[in-house]
């Protein structure tokens, strides 16, 4: 049997279906409010999902083109930047993290250091003013500004 992305997906979804059924069965319903209850719907859907997953395993579609290892690395990098942005968002405050995140992403998308830095400072500054002054959203400023 050829390994195809669709087959992996099929097995993953089967596993998910089994997991959901197990989870649903373990839901404790202290009192029957309606004849169906909270378990039946997810269980029914999981069975449907398992059936369609089986079709996918038996008859996988054409293999799409998946990114090469180096592209994958770059995709990972952009996710790391986004997670770091989220991690420091409150801790360091919006202005500083936004400058860093915008510069890093612009760089990753092919801007020169100079263009990326200028974009970072301008976009972070302009968006901060827009969000806080115009839209009245309160954004974290970080410990040293408070």
């Amino acid at each position: 049997m050829k390994i195809a992305a669709d087959r992996i997906l099929g097995f993953a979804l089967m596993g998910l279906a089994a997991f959901i059924v197990a989870q649903s069965l373990s839901i404790e319903v202290p009192f029957a409010y309606d004849p169906v209850g909270p378990k039946a719907f997810p269980i029914g859907l999981s069975i449907l999902m398992a059936i369609f997953s089986l079709v996918l395993i038996l008859r996988p579609g054409p293999e799409g083109d998946w990114p090469s290892a180096s592209v994958m690395l770059q995709l990972g990098l952009v996710m790391v930047i986004l997670i770091a942005f989220a991690f420091f968002f409150v801790r360091l405050g919006y202005p500083i993290t936004a400058v860093a995140a915008i510069t890093a992403i612009a760089r990753l998308f092919g801007a020169s250091w100079r263009a990326a830095g200028v974009t970072g400072v301008l976009m972070a500054g302009a968006s901060y003013v827009l969000f806080t002054a115009v839209l009245e959203i309160s954004l974290p400023t970080g410990l040293w500004f408070s």
Partner: peptide, 15 residues
């Protein structure tokens, strides 16, 4: 250019 557009999408999504 994409390098100016994508950070904008990120900022709008986060905020």
């Amino acid at each position: 250019p994409r390098w100016a557009l994508v950070p904008g999408i990120v900022i709008l999504s986060f905020v």
